[in-house]
Design a binder for these strands. Structure first.
Lengths: 111, 111
DNA sequence: TAGTCATGTCACTATATGGTGACATATATC
DNA sequence: GATATATGTCACCATATAGTGACATGACTA
C-alpha cells in the first residue's frame, strides 16, 4: 500500500471528504468536528480522522485535552499533479476517439 | 450516492486506477485488459470495469463479440476542477497555519 | 482531591467489497 | 451445423470497512 494509495483510499469516502471540507477553512478540534456531523458517533469521526492522518491529509496538534486537526493540502496537490494531470493529458485524443465512435451510436456518452 | 461519489469511490481502488492508466493511451477490449492483469481473473476485471462504467469514467462500445472500453476523461477533469482546485485554493493559508504550528513542534509534518 | 470534559482504545456487529469458479449467451470460423 | 472464442451472469467466500457502545486515560476546574 503506497502512500498515494492511502491518499486515494482516504478520499474515496464521502464522509472523509466532508471532514476535509470542514478543515479546509479552519482547523477544528475533534469535538467540533463531531458536533458538525450529528449523524456520526465520535468514534466513527476519530476513525476517519485516523485514516486521513495515515494518508498525511490531516496533521494533528495536541494542546492540553484538545486535539486540533489541520488539513494538509500538499499531498492532494501532489496526487492531482502526478495522476490527474497525467490523465487529462490524454483528454484531447480520448475525446476525439469518443466523438468518432459516438457517430455510430444513438445514445450520448455520460457527461 | 451522487455521481461525484461514484467517481471518487471508483478512483479509490488501485486496480481500477491501473485499468484507467491502461485505457489512457488507447481503447482496449476486456480480453486485452485481462491479459495485462495476470493477477486477476476475468470476472474481477469485468466487475472493476462495471464500477468505472457506473461512474462514467469508462464508456463501452460493443463490436461483434468484442467489448471495447474507452476512457472518458471528462468526469475526472470535472471532479479535479470542482473539488481538488477548491481544496488547493486553501493551500496558501493552510500552509501558513502549518508553518506557524510546526514552529512549536519537533517533528516535521508529512510531505 | 473530586468531578467534568475531551480524547483514546477496545470489542463487537453489519454490510460492502474484491475475488473466484461454474455456467450461459452470443458471435466468428471451420 | 459444429466448434472455438469473447463476453455476460450467477452464487459463493474471505476480508475490509463503517459504525456503535462501553470503558480507560489525561487534563482542566471547583
Amino acid at each position: 500500500m503506497t502512500n498515494e494509495d492511502l491518499i486515494w483510499k482516504a478520499l474515496g469516502d464521502p464522509t472523509r471528504r466532508a471532514l476535509l471540507d470542514d478543515l479546509a477553512s479552519e482547523p477544528l478540534t475533534t469535538g467540533e468536528l463531531v458536533a458538525k456531523h450529528s449523524d456520526l458517533c465520535r468514534t466513527a469521526v476519530m476513525k476517519h480522522l485516523g485514516v486521513l492522518e495515515d494518508a498525511g491529509l490531516v496533521v494533528v496538534r495536541r494542546e492540553g485535552r484538545h486535539r486540533w486537526n489541520y488539513i494538509n493540502p500538499v499531498p492532494i496537490d501532489r496526487v492531482c499533479g502526478r495522476w490527474i494531470h497525467g490523465q487529462v493529458r490524454h483528454l484531447t485524443q480520448a475525446v476525439n476517439r469518443l466523438k468518432s465512435f459516438v457517430e455510430d451510436q444513438e445514445e450520448p456518452w455520460p457527461q
